[in-house]
């Protein structure tokens, strides 16, 4: 089993108002089987022993589904591996002596809390604006009353797998949240259960994106490339169609 020495340039920022800067670190004895976040754990253990404040970064499930982790690694959200969240990226993708630059997602709508931790509550507010089907507990009809064609259901699922990590915003040259918003719309708008609220939902969620300060989508398609679950930018085109239908 080979071990490596990895050089890091990590963004350090005390709080929202601090201007922030890069710090250099060296991590020795990096094992190829380590995950990227475990490599940072090892660095933090060392920093704690040296009485230096450890690097803060978000994570929780460490199996690629909760969407907490969202590092921008060498300028790419979630690093070099496709359809992989940062927590599932392993150090075997790097080699001895590599220098890795780690930054937080940079977006006005995602203010930095500390170091690499950002506030993504804007996403919650986009969902709150209309990302649901209004059905009160207890008022649901028998589940098999409404058949949903298998392909419709499968496509809805594909869009529903969004983990809300914000990589799409991080990677978008315009900081647009169109893929996140579009994915939820593409999930709910195509289901028969979601039809009654389709217009209202679409307008409200599009409007909320604007309020939160996300940029416009210029169809770079970078969001799809960095998406850890590979959500297609078709969601964005569908969102525009839904919007046109709703308004005109």
């Amino acid at each position: 089993m080979s071990t490596m020495t990895i050089n890091l340039k990590v963004w350090r920022q005390k709080n929202r108002n601090d201007s922030g800067h890069f710090e250099d670190y060296t991590v020795e004895d990096v094992n190829e089987h380590m995950s990227f976040l475990e490599m940072l754990d090892v660095l933090n253990e060392k920093l704690i022993k040296e009485h230096i404040d450890p690097i803060e970064f978000d994570y929780d499930c460490r199996e690629g589904i909760c969407g907490s982790c969202n590092l921008v690694i060498n300028g790419v959200a979630h690093g070099p591996k496709h359809k992989t969240a940062t927590c599932q990226l392993h150090m075997r993708n790097y080699k001895d002596g590599d220098t890795i630059v780690i930054e937080p997602p940079r977006s006005a709508a995602f203010p930095v809390i500390k170091d690499l931790v950002v506030d993504r509550s804007a996403f919650d507010r986009i969902i709150a604006a209309g990302g649901y089907i209004s059905v009160k507990t207890g008022s649901a009809p028998e589940a098999n009353l409404i058949p949903v064609p298998q392909d419709v259901s499968n496509t809805a699922f594909d869009y529903a797998t969004c983990i809300g990590c914000g990589a799409c915003v991080a990677a978008c040259p315009n900081s647009s949240a169109a893929l996140f918003t579009g994915a939820k719309l593409a999930h709910l708008n195509r289901l028969p259960q979601g039809k009654p609220e389709r217009d209202k939902r679409t307008i409200a969620m599009v409007n909320q994106m604007e309020i939160e300060g996300f940029g416009d989508c210029s169809n770079h398609g970078e969001c799809e490339a960095v998406c850890p679950v590979g959500i297609s930018i078709s969601a964005i085109a569908e969102m525009r169609r839904s919007y046109m239908k709703a308004v005109f």
């Binding site: 340039k9 930054e103 315009n174 210029s218 398609g221 960095v226």
Partner: peptide, 27 residues
Amino acid sequence: RKRKARPQDYKVYSSKGDPSRQSLSSR
């Protein structure tokens, strides 16, 4: 609006490649 949406740029930025449509043209 894009300038306002990302007031601070990345130190390093690169495209993840296919299926991204990002190119010199798009940028």
